[in-house]
Design a protein around this nucleic acid. Structure first.
Length: 93
DNA sequence: CGTATGACGTGCA
DNA sequence: GTGCACGCCATAC
């Protein structure tokens, strides 16, 4: 895996895969996820995908903004996301 | 096929 | 430190 070069619509699938590989206790910025997914400038699409994504295998709550903010969350609101991160042992800004 | 939307990022006032 | 505006990519309708 990991072949699909840019241009393939597999971006979404890639983002989910990358996020699913994020170790517990660690956080990645939308920028990093987009870059690992193959499009360092598609952080916009990343957030959009996470929003529409509902996969429990994808710890989207581990994806935060580059500013250090947790960003947003769909299942419970940003407040819930922050709580989860704290529960994982993540030091929030 | 074209338009609208977005869980972002950066810059400037 | 805060607020507003623009730009970027991909998805969904």
């Amino acid at each position: 895996m990991r072949l699909r070069a840019r241009g393939n619509t597999g971006f979404k699938n890639r983002v989910l895969d990358v996020v699913a590989e994020i170790p517990q206790g660690e956080t990645r910025t939308y920028r990093q996820v987009a870059e690992l997914a193959g499009s360092p400038d598609a952080y916009r699409a990343v957030g959009n995908i996470m929003k529409g994504n509902r996969n429990p295998n994808v710890p989207c709550h581990r994806v935060v903004k580059s500013s250090g903010e947790v960003g947003g969350y769909n299942a419970g609101g940003p407040r819930r996301k922050r709580e989860i991160l704290k529960s994982e042992g993540v030091l929030l800004a």
